[in-house]
Design a protein around this nucleic acid. Structure first.
Length: 765
DNA sequence: CGCCGAACTTAGCAAACCTAAC
DNA sequence: GTTAGGTTTGCTAAGTTCGGCG
């Protein structure tokens, strides 16, 4: 079913955005840049190579097949049944939906398809498969083994490092104490108009021991969350009309109506599911009178309300500076009061101290629950977590918390249950906090441990492709994809509760197509599915013959909506991984492959003689390779074309300037030749300088243009923030004398303070 | 096991903010 | 001082993993 469409045609992407059509662009996009490099070819070579290598085994396969199908015993019966149910459902739905609409039709026109694997490059040494990381990780390891107590020896080493760093960062004083203090860094920001910003002097939590008992903190005190402001009824002059007649709504009904009214410009208010869900939930808020009157959403006219809110936001923009300032100050006050907590003697920033306001739920992609009312959260819904001996947060006057508990095995400060999916939401600390940072660091250390044994693991799964047991083969092929393509694990999801998206283990038959031959390649697998956030993953890759044959086997006698890996799920996979390496799970591969790719691309792309902007372009390209690998996409910015044009005209202008300057230089030279005097010689120098300067500026602009163009629909942020060991970037900056600010903005520097502090220029992931 | 809830990480979008160009 | 345009931040949805229970 999914097969029919060419890749530009029919997929959804999630954005609740206006619809424009970019469909075709993507296609071209695929082809041109990002394949400039020869990686792909190398890769192809490799595959050819390994394919032939294993040719001789292929016949035996057939014999094995029969055995295979039954060899994994009966224990899956249950799951089988369950899965079967799902499939059945899907089949039905499909039949239904295939009439009304091409499934997964684009909501806003553009299709997000690029070829993630295209850039993924692997070092050349062909030791059978992947390169072996032979390097020994240097110096102190974060030791990742379950919160082991680290004696102070760590410290001395840090001291040394700290010395070196001193002139660069001049914040050195090690041991923190309890109170907030003045900040020393980031002068530019602090010294400006309001140089009084108070902040805790950098506390180097990474130089301290961690808890070994599984507890996350000893002391925790905070002021509780900030609630959404209460509903303010509309002024009487702003009217809602039903069937053409004005109608005053009760406050609760009106509030929900405003949620809808505010979204009128969004495409999704036109979607049937959205409207249906909204109307159903809206009616629940109505008085019985309203309920009996308002029976048809199509007869509702919210436009006056919509206008009103537009005017409001316009008015907000037009506010005087003083008024704006006042609001800003108020926000700042709120932040100071509620935005921090004290955890184990340190004041730490809270990530999200505001409770999510009520509104209409908009899931991403084709979400069955879109439009449902997300209800207002009250103190009675909130569970507070803090230490017993702390000053407990006070609920707003006249209210109570649902519960106050003192659980130091978790990191959250408050939680509530959300009404759409029934899941729990949390208030937690900012990424710059110790508790997040430690975890982050640990994550990269796990990935580095994987580096040490990845060869073994790869050898293992390659071996498992031949296993007699179906389950093991499936596991091995899935793992291969996770490793090679950086796919997500792919948990099963409850049908009808969320958008239909998949990851590796939950891939269905309809998501892959096999091509024994394609152009000049053999054994090509085409992936086409919606992943997390309903972002489309589209990729064609040649695989080894054995993988291909296995896939054919897995596909036998199955319907499009059946699971590709019917004997596999994430828990089986992760259990296996756990046995291969302590702490290994599917997502570690993503982290590992992302980080190793960055490191390796940086090595490859950075030219020592390049200017700083050119080096940064290289960095961005390396970053981009990772983003492509991980399929981190974004909608092309609305103003992309225009901004591109602007940039181009700037370039043109520069070019003109340059030729003018060159002419002048020439003239000056001629002049000098003629006169040979000092003055004309000087003039030549001046002109030469001018030319040079303009050349540089031009270069910079061109670099910028390239960078932007290449980045059109690729989002670098996600990988930078979540997948790339920051120490790689820090080391790169140090090695090439690039100011860290060029790579990480303020927030990022805060999050990665640990890495900035500890990584030296020779750091190896 | 299989299932489920809890906890925590990862994700893209859009509002807010900032800054450089008029 | 405005505005245009880029960048940052906030928001919150959507994943993964883990552990406990029957």
């Amino acid at each position: 079913m999914s097969g029919g469409h060419g890749h530009g045609d029919s997929q959804v992407n999630s954005g609740p955005k206006g619809s424009d059509t970019h469909k075709h662009k993507d296609k071209h996009k695929d082809k041109d840049h990002r394949h400039k490099d020869h990686k792909k070819d190398k890769e192809r070579e490799k595959f050819k190579h390994s394919n032939s290598e294993h040719k001789e085994h292929s016949e035996k396969k057939h014999r094995d097949k029969e055995k295979l199908k039954h060899s994994d015993g009966s224990s899956d019966k249950h799951r089988e049944k369950h899965k079967e149910k799902d499939r059945e459902k899907r089949r039905e739905e499909k039949i239904k939906s295939s009439h009304d609409k091409p499934k997964k039709e684009k909501e806003n026109g553009y299709v997000r398809a690029i070829s993630p694997a295209a850039i993924k490059s692997e070092p050349e040494e062909d030791n059978g498969f992947y390169p072996s990381p032979q390097h020994k990780s240097s110096k102190r390891e974060y030791d990742d083994e379950a919160f082991e107590y680290k004696p102070k020896k760590v410290k001395s080493e840090h001291d040394k490092k700290a010395q070196k760093r001193k002139h660069e960062y001049e914040d050195d004083e090690e041991d923190e104490d309890i109170k907030p203090k003045k900040k020393t860094k980031d002068k530019k920001v602090t010294e400006g108009k309001k140089g009084k910003k108070e902040e805790e002097e950098k506390w180097k939590w990474w130089e301290e021991e961690r808890y070994t008992d599984g507890s996350k903190w000893r002391f925790l005190e905070h002021k509780g969350p900030v609630f959404a402001p209460p509903y303010e009824p509309l002024p009487d002059k702003v009217k809602f009309y039903y069937d053409g007649k004005p109608m005053k709504l009760s406050a609760p009904a009106e509030e929900v109506a405003t949620f809808f009214a505010k979204m009128l410009d969004h495409e999704y208010t036109t979607k049937e599911i959205f409207r249906k869900n909204f109307f159903k939930d809206w009616r629940k808020e109505m008085t019985s009178e309203e309920k009996s009157k308002i029976t048809d959403l199509n007869k509702c006219n919210f436009s006056e309300i919509n206008e009103y809110f537009k005017a409001q936001s316009e008015a907000r923009k037009q506010m005087s500076k003083e008024e704006k300032q006042k609001i800003k100050e108020e926000n700042e006050r709120l932040l100071q009061e509620y935005g921090f907590c004290v955890m184990d003697n340190h004041k730490e920033r809270i990530g999200n101290f505001r409770i999510e306001p009520p509104g209409l739920f908009r899931g991403r992609g084709d979400h069955p629950k879109m439009g449902m009312l997300k209800r207002r959260i009250r103190p009675e819904d909130i569970i507070i977590n803090c230490s017993k001996d702390s000053k407990h947060p006070k609920p707003p006057p006249g209210t109570k918390w649902k519960e106050v508990r003192h659980d130091n095995k978790v990191t959250w400060l408050a939680s509530w249950t959300e009404n759409i999916q029934g899941s729990i939401k949390y208030i937690m600390l900012n990424p710059s906090s110790r508790i997040k940072g430690e975890k982050d660091w640990q994550k990269y250390e796990t990935a580095r441990r994987l580096k040490k044994c990845v060869d073994r693991i790869r050898a293992q799964y390659r071996e498992d492709w031949k296993s007699k047991e179906m389950k093991i083969r499936q596991r091995a092929v899935a793992l291969y994809f996770i490793d090679k393509l950086a796919l997500r694990a792919g948990n099963e999801k409850e049908e009808g509760e969320t958008a239909d998206t998949v990851g590796c283990c939950s891939l269905r038959v309809e998501h892959v197509k096999l091509y024994p031959k394609m152009d000049d390649q053999e054994y090509v697998v085409e992936f086409d599915f919606l992943g997390k956030d309903s972002i489309r993953y589209y990729n064609k890759i040649p695989v080894e013959k054995r993988v291909f044959k296995n896939l054919q086997l897995f596909l036998e006698n199955k319907q499009p909506e059946d699971d590709l890996f019917d004997r596999l799920n994430t828990s089986i996979l992760n259990k296996h991984l756990q046995e291969l390496m302590d702490g290994l799970t599917a997502k570690v591969f993503r982290t590992y492959n992302a980080s190793i790719t960055l490191q390796q691309q940086l090595k490859e792309l950075t030219c020592p003689d390049d200017s700083i902007p050119a080096k940064i372009l290289s960095y961005n390209r390396a970053n981009r390779a990772v983003a492509i690998l991980c399929n981190h996409q974004r909608a092309p910015p609305k103003t992309f074309e225009k901004s591109m044009q602007n940039l181009q005209s700037k370039i043109d202008e520069k070019q003109n300037q340059l030729s003018a300057a060159r002419k002048q230089l020439k003239a000056a030279k001629a002049d000098h030749k003629a006169s040979h005097d000092d003055k004309s010689k000087k003039a030549v120098e001046v002109k030469r300088k001018a030319v040079q300067r303009i050349e540089e500026q031009l270069m910079k602009l061109q670099v910028q243009a390239t960078d932007r163009e290449e980045n059109k629909q690729i989002a670098l942020g996600t990988s930078k923030l979540n997948y790339l060991d920051p120490r790689i970037s820090v080391a790169w900056c140090k090695k090439w004398g690039i100011p860290i600010e060029k790579i990480y903005n303020k927030t990022q520097r805060e999050k990665f303070a640990w890495a900035i502090d500890m990584a030296e220029k020779d750091y190896e992931f």
